[in-house]
Design a binder for these strands. Structure first.
Lengths: 189, 189
DNA sequence: GAAAAGTCTAAACATTTGTTATCGTTTAAC
DNA sequence: GTTAAACGATAACAAATGTTTAGACTTTTC
């Protein structure tokens, strides 16, 4: 649990004792390639911290078509955070695309942290703000940039993504078909 | 400043005295129809609370085309919150579409609140979380629903929007042209 | 290491969406 | 109240994007 300590210490002022107490409520879990980490229609009661590996977040539309809407990389928190907060059933599937190790933070631990860590609320605010900025940036880009521009820039958001994720999932993330992405790449050669 | 008091009291436990001290650092400002509330390329140092009226948030793409990406209604907070936090120049234009009255919360007041309100950090977290959920929902919908479906549902997100905002701005928000929206409406008759 | 599954490109064709222009109507400004 | 501007629908055409199928290549699995 070394990396999560570092990440938390970068965000807030927190003593070793506080960290120990907080992390004693967490545990490690591993997933194989392709394994499902979290399923839709279940209330998410955990937040995951990515120790190793890669998780994609998927949503299905009314026609049953799957859309990849996010990739989670090392040192990041991942969850259906909305429905974790709302305590409502998730719409998302979380799937490990590589051998993945996460730290599981149960709701009880999160709530304990808000109450008992000196800067617990602040950490909650900073995480929410961090992901707000990520989402805002993303929405901004969908309006103001073409899929090709976003493709050309995607490694800035997800480092090394091209070597870790098949192109059709990237196309899905961009909101276009893999055939179309292939065409766009060809056109710029 | 009655409504902002109520909104804050619904979010956190806060004494009258705290509220008085906090709000004494805020002031009211009015804008006429079409007036610009906030401009791009300026660091946003204020968060606005909507007392009355309607503000749209606009971003321009590389081709100079404008896209309406958000509407702010009564009792909501509005700002380029990302760049407020990052203290970087905004990409957004905020424009009043109606006679609008806002409460201006300068950065100094916000920072004061985090420090000195008993539950200041918590309020920050709740606001960030609230808008996170809004954005998440929005991203979810862009992937899993058609523009027509989102059009049919838009009044759930922005009550009475059809009577307050011209259709081509709604089309812009949906990411389609006004001509196309007109076509979609016709097809479902 | 062989078989199976997955991946990317390509082409042909279908469908969706954008562009431009026009027209009748509504709304806003003086 | 009158005039100018804005608005929404529509049609014709152009461009962008999706669908389906096929084939070559790569990766995974046993």
């Amino acid at each position: 649990m070394e990396r999560i300590r570092q990440v938390m210490q970068q965000m807030i002022t927190v003593s070793d004792e506080e960290l120990n107490n907080f992390l004693s409520q967490a545990f490690t879990k591993t997933f194989k390639r392709q394994e499902i980490v979290s399923r839709p229609q279940v209330v998410p009661n955990e937040i995951f911290f990515m120790n190793k590996g890669l998780i994609r977040v998927v949503i299905a539309d009314n026609a049953g078509q799957e859309h990849t809407i996010h990739f989670a990389l090392e040192d990041q928190f991942i969850s259906d955070y909305s429905n974790f907060m709302l305590q409502q059933p998730s719409f998302y599937t979380l799937q490990a695309l590589e051998e993945t190790e996460v730290i599981v933070l149960p709701r009880t631990a999160i709530d304990w942290g808000y109450k008992n860590l000196q800067e617990g609320e602040k950490m909650g605010r900073l995480i929410a703000e961090y992901y707000f900025i990520y989402q805002d940036n993303r929405i901004k880009n969908t309006y103001s940039r073409t899929p090709k521009e976003r493709y050309d820039n995607i490694a800035a958001v997800f480092p090394n993504i091209h070597n870790r994720v098949p192109q059709h999932m990237i196309a899905s993330y961009l909101g276009i078909t893999s055939v179309h992405l292939s065409r766009l790449k060809k056109a710029s050669r």
